[in-house]
């Protein structure tokens, strides 16, 4: 039974691979979709479905039921697509403990189309329209320290989780990705629904994260990676003691 199924899925992979090659050709040959196609929802869904079949269905299944490599996408919502694709995590290059950030494969329009398609499958959280990072900075800081810093560190520099998993650094993430992460709870990250952190609160958090990772100008000089006392200790030995030993050698040297 199992072997039959695996043989079938083997065929399926071959077929899909062929479809992918063809699809890629079509994608490159076809003119780029215009930006205004996203305004028409049904067109966006259709375009998104094409993109899905070409780039995602290998793992997530032709009918979104999930597959060998990927989970079902029914009900994960547009946010999950925005997070995964816009941060370059999807499409996945190879299996790993955790999907790493990579170069982004799709442009913004394509991502919106993919998101519209996945959203059409079974609903789920979506990003609000309008600016996402003009919230209350101080509230955002407090919420960040309560909900986020325990994994992502006080300055969003990231941190270790169990067994080689990690909470990534937040600097490369833009407001959309941060927002989408909170909504969709990718991989081991908890999910923060809108009932739990209201859009205003999410906006505050996004604002604060963007502040500490991008607009923050460290007033005290080099930030040493925002990793806290460990790089400070390294610096005091490598730079402090190191330079001073060279100085003592100079003072002690005989002409």
């Amino acid at each position: 039974m199992t072997s039959t199924r695996s043989r079938i899925s083997g065929y399926a992979v071959v077929v899909l691979a062929l479809a992918l090659v063809g699809g890629l050709y079509t994608a490159f040959a076809a003119p780029k979709p215009k930006a205004d196609t996203g305004t028409n929802q049904s067109i966006a869904v259709k375009e998104g479905r094409q993109l899905y079949l070409q780039g995602c269905s290998t793992c997530h299944g032709l009918s979104n039921q999930g597959g060998a490599g990927g989970p079902s996408l029914i009900g994960v919502g547009a946010s999950a697509v925005v997070f995964q694709v816009e941060s370059g995590r999807m499409p996945l290059a190879s299996a790993a403990a955790q999907a790493p950030r990579k170069a982004v494969k799709y442009d913004r329009t394509q991502i919106d189309q993919l998101a519209a398609y996945v959203q059409s499958l079974g609903g789920g959280p979506t990003l609000p329209s309008g600016p996402l990072d003009d919230g209350n900075l101080a509230l955002g800081g407090d919420l960040f320290r309560t909900n986020c810093s325990s994994c992502h560190n006080f300055a969003g520099a990231g941190g270790a989780l169990t067994r080689a998993k990690y909470a990534p650094a937040l600097k490369p993430a833009d407001a959309r990705v941060i927002w989408a992460a909170m909504q969709s709870g990718p991989e081991n990250m908890p999910r923060f629904s809108d009932n739990q952190l209201t859009p205003d609160e999410k906006k505050a958090i996004t604002t604060y994260v963007r502040f500490i990772t991008n607009q923050n100008k460290d007033p005290g000089g080099a930030a040493l990676g925002h990793y806290g006392p460990i790089p400070e200790g390294l610096v005091v030995f490598l730079v402090g003691i190191g330079v001073l030993i060279i100085v003592t050698l100079w003072i002690g040297a005989r002409a």
Partner: peptide, 16 residues
């Protein structure tokens, strides 16, 4: 919660 609001059943999604 941290802002002093009572938490209701349904506020959290699975994984929250």
């Amino acid at each position: 919660d941290e802002l002093g609001r009572p938490v209701k059943l349904g506020d959290l999604e699975v994984g929250g």
